[in-house]
Simulated assay, not measured.
Amino acid sequence: MDVFTMTGRKRETYDVQMVYSSLWECALGIAAVTNSRLIDTLEKPYSYWKEVKESLSEELVNQLEYVETNNTWKALLQLLHYTKNENIEAFTTHVQSLDNVRLKFLCLPFVGDRFQDVREKAAYGDERAITALKEITKENPFFPQYIEFISKSEPTELKTHLIKVMTGWYRSVVAPELEATEQILRTDYESKKEMKAKVSAEELVQWATGGIQYLPEPSVHRVLLIPQFVYRPWTIEADIEGTKVFYYPVANESIAPHDNYMPSQSLVLKHKALGDEVRLRMVKLLSECERSLQELTDQLDLGKSTIHHHLKLLRAAKIVETNQGKYSLNRNGLELLSAELEQYVNR
């Protein structure tokens, strides 16, 4: 269907803001060590996590087991969005100052502006609201159980647990490496801040997160980018009022800030992917229109296994994407290449 538009407005987008803190690293470290299903996929090997756990006090290990059972790492992340991320003492003071209902309200997940009253009633312990909130979030693998737990937990016990696990992990794991960790986070923050002046908001999000194309959506006016080292290579996505949050993995060059010759992994992957005649031909073909594997095979007169191998490299570099069996060019990913190269050369 042909559409004739008479609007003169540009499509609205979101504002990107960035923040970093060792407290985010602390909460995400707790999330990582208690995620038994994901821990083998993290960049830090299982032996690292095993060694860390063996070095902890019995009390802290018990608190971590409580986190794993009840997913209270989510509560820590939620609360940090309403805390001045100055230091662990500020976090403790803030949690202690919250009244019972406010504590539970902040810990419960945000699921949209129109459900804020349901969220508040659930914080008061209203059974119908709790059931409704669980139904709204039923597609999430852990939200319903987590909502039940938060809504019915004893506030003083919940506060004590959150403070103990956060301060315990911070002092045992984060504090000994604090200077190095903050340097990594600060370096990545400065890198993203510099790139923000060169690219669009959507391109910045895609570059920072390693390829996530987040398009503007109603009621979301801000994207918050939070660098993290402990949960690499994963990006964690979350929602708070009016804001989409991405806890994204810091770039390789941020880990070695004194090495001005260290390129980003994204830059390396893209140049490797484009450094081949067949793959460049594929990029040209996909710039014309989306194509199936069979169509690319016919056009290039190569075997399907060979074409599939080249497509795998292009997809890993975020230059090509797939949807319902069709391959297409990720133009944003390709257009970012010049900005990434310029930033690397001028760093």
Rank of each mutant, 00 (worst) to 15 (best):
T167M: 04
S292K: 03
V33G: 00
K121G: 01
E68C: 01
E290Y: 10
N62Y: 06
K304S: 11
D259Y: 02
S200I: 00
I130C: 05
V111Q: 10
K272L: 15
T137Q: 08
Q228W: 01
L178C: 00
E253R: 12
G8I: 13
K104E: 03
Q78E: 14
F110D: 08
Q299P: 13
D276P: 02
L314H: 07
L280N: 12
E177I: 03
L267T: 08
F143W: 09
Y248M: 01
E179W: 01
Y170E: 08
V223D: 06
E154Y: 02
V245I: 15
W207H: 07
E135P: 14
S328I: 08
T306C: 05
S287D: 13
K164G: 03
K74L: 11
A317R: 04
Y231C: 02
K74P: 02
L311I: 11
M6D: 04
P227H: 00
S36W: 01
N252R: 09
T72C: 07
P45G: 14
V33P: 03
R102K: 14
F143S: 03
D126Y: 09
D276S: 11
P176N: 09
A129K: 09
T209I: 04
S338L: 06
R315Q: 08
G333H: 02
M6E: 06
C26D: 10
S57R: 11
K159Y: 10
L286M: 04
Q116G: 09
L158W: 04
N346G: 07
V61L: 12
R331G: 08
E340Y: 14
R11A: 09
T41W: 02
V283C: 10
R102F: 03
G29E: 01
G29H: 01
S292L: 11
Y189F: 10
K138M: 06
K196A: 13
E177K: 07
H310K: 14
L274T: 11
T83R: 07
K196P: 03
E190M: 09
